[in-house]
Simulated scan of single mutants.
Amino acid sequence: MTPVFGHGHLRLYLLKLLDESPKHGYELIQALSERFGGTYAPSAGTIYPRLAKLEDEGLVTKAADGRKTVYEITDAGRAELASREGELNSIESDLTDSVRRLADEVRSGVGEAMKSLRADLASAARQAREATDATSQSYSSWFAFDPTEDARGEPRSGADARPAGETSASAEASRDASRNEIRDVDIALAEFRQSVRTALRSRGARASVPAGTAAAFARRLDEVRASLLDDLKK
């Protein structure tokens, strides 16, 4: 992301914010976020070391307010602001440009994320269609097998033959129901796979994926697979 403050400028801008009113660290972070329209908010690790340095230089003081620490500008801090008024005006101008650049970067990032999401959704839909087609093709031939015929297509005899009065309607309905179940499982698997991939990519874009994620994922899949296979054996 584009740097927001030049060297030493954040330190001076903190003095400006404290000159407006005493604030604790979180209020300073919120104030900066508001100035940037939510496109930038410094971390506590950025703010507090600078406040500590300002305190060491005698430019701010701090006092406990319950569990919070409130910072207040000193006369020496106001004197520094006054002596660097021109530099502060330049910082304000630079901040306007920074807000514009950050907004452009956010819009660009959102646009790229939407493109990636659309591509992922299209890929998931294509995989689901392919899975459905493959399932229909592979299982249609299996379910087309007529148990009243032998390998040569001739009627079976004896115990293997279907009773003369039995119709094929119930058998066909059962085959249709099985095909539908298998198709829905394949579609669910494709959608599950794509949703997990999208979630992992999104996390990877924001922060590192936690160590052990793959092992935990594999372990949970093994548990689900074992449970489902047990159900299918019943």
Rank of each mutant, 00 (worst) to 15 (best):
S157H: 08
K68L: 15
R193C: 14
I73K: 01
R129L: 15
S202L: 15
T74S: 10
A214Y: 05
A103C: 03
A205T: 06
A44D: 09
E166Y: 11
P42F: 02
A82S: 14
E154G: 04
M114W: 01
T74D: 02
G153A: 05
R206E: 10
L12Q: 05
S43M: 13
N180W: 11
D230H: 15
Y40L: 03
T74N: 03
R225Y: 10
L54E: 00
P49K: 05
A79P: 04
D160T: 06
E27C: 06
R126C: 08
G77E: 01
R118I: 03
R107I: 01
V185C: 07
S33G: 11
K16Q: 12
A177P: 01
L200K: 04
A76P: 03
S140E: 12
Y48K: 07
D75C: 07
G8R: 08
P163W: 10
A171H: 13
W142L: 15
L28G: 05
A207I: 03
E223G: 13
R156K: 13
E181N: 14
A226P: 09
T135N: 12
E80F: 05
D65I: 06
D19H: 05
V70W: 08
A122D: 11
E92Y: 02
S116M: 01
K16N: 12
L28N: 03
A144F: 05
G6V: 02
S83A: 15
S140P: 02
R183Q: 06
T167I: 04
T39V: 13
L232F: 13
E130C: 04
S208R: 10
A173M: 04
R162S: 14
R162H: 03
Q194D: 09
G25N: 15
V110M: 00
N89M: 07
R201G: 00
G153R: 01
A134T: 15
E72I: 10
A214F: 08
F36N: 01
R101A: 03
I91D: 04
Q127F: 06
S43I: 09
G153W: 01
A211V: 07
A216F: 03
P42E: 06
D65A: 13
E154N: 06
G6A: 05
R197E: 07
A122L: 12
A119N: 02
M1R: 08
H24N: 11
L228C: 07
G165A: 15
P155L: 03
L232N: 01
K16G: 02
E80C: 02
E85F: 04
Y13V: 01
V60H: 02
M1F: 08
A226G: 06
Q194E: 15
Y26N: 14
K233T: 14
L228R: 07
I47L: 15
R67D: 11
A177Y: 03
W142M: 11
